[in-house]
């Protein structure tokens, strides 16, 4: 099935099928949600943020970091000049490999997206795009197709009903949690697949490590043990 899906995909986009084209998110639970097991280079990913301060930008940035790990630069497109570079560095992004562009208006912003997505030396383009009509979106998709970059578009909640040319469209919703920072990621649409799943993820409060909510890993063990509910020894059979 997977092979056939890959073949269809290859015919559709004209891109060579290769394992190195896929970018893992660094979180197995999120990768499992995606039919191809990751994000494909040369495609657009739309992150719909249901509420401000919801975590879509951070999650997309983590994918951008994965995309730039081996080579290529990250282009940050930021019309309002509101991105805070120390936060990028805190997420593990090497600021020496970031081109931070601050377009003045929508027209310029779309032009910058187009230029950055077309450049083969760019590994990922990350930014918030509030307004995007169907034609402009299609143009961006054509720009990135066949290139090695990944376009990570952070969109407002209103974009949920608009036409999308993204390969993968994910909804990110913040969730209340007692510990760590929790979000719910939902696949809204995915090209070539009917998969519609969702998963609750959380960032470990101090390390920023991403994992499935409720799962503990080695780093979270101490925090897990400190929870009084875990500390009581079960007396069951």
């Amino acid at each position: 099935m997977a092979h056939l899906r890959g073949r269809i995909r290859q015919l559709e986009t004209g891109a060579p099928a290769s394992g190195s084209l896929m970018i893992g998110s660094g979180c197995a639970a999120l990768d499992r949600l995606l039919p191809e097991g990751g994000f494909r280079r040369g495609s657009l990913v739309e992150w719909i943020e249901s509420r401000p301060g919801g975590g879509a930008g951070s999650l997309a940035l983590q994918i951008a970091r994965q995309a730039c790990q081996q080579q290529g630069v990250l282009v940050v497109l930021d019309r309002g000049a509101q991105v805070y570079p120390p936060a990028l560095a805190a997420w593990g992004i090497d600021l020496g490999r970031v081109i931070w562009v601050q377009p003045r208006d929508l027209q310029e912003e779309l032009w910058c997206w187009d230029q950055a997505l077309r450049c083969p030396a760019v590994a990922a383009v990350w930014g918030e795009l509030r307004q995007l009509d169907s034609r402009a979106f299609r143009r961006l998709q054509l720009a990135v197709e066949g290139q090695g970059g990944l376009g990570l578009l952070i969109r407002p909640a209103a974009a949920r009903t608009a036409t999308s040319w993204a390969d993968v469209r994910l909804g990110v919703e913040p969730c209340a949690a007692v510990r760590n920072r929790r979000i719910r990621v939902q696949v809204l649409s995915c090209r070539g697949s009917a998969a519609r799943g969702q998963v609750d993820l959380e960032w470990e409060e101090w390390s920023g490590q991403l994992r499935k909510a409720g799962e503990t890993c080695a780093g979270g063990l101490v925090a897990g043990l400190a929870d009084p509910a875990v500390a009581c020894r079960s007396t069951g059979a």
Partner: peptide, 12 residues
Amino acid sequence: CRWGPLCRPLKL
């Protein structure tokens, strides 16, 4: 860089 990822906001 002296901060953890969740210590500084991405948007200022």
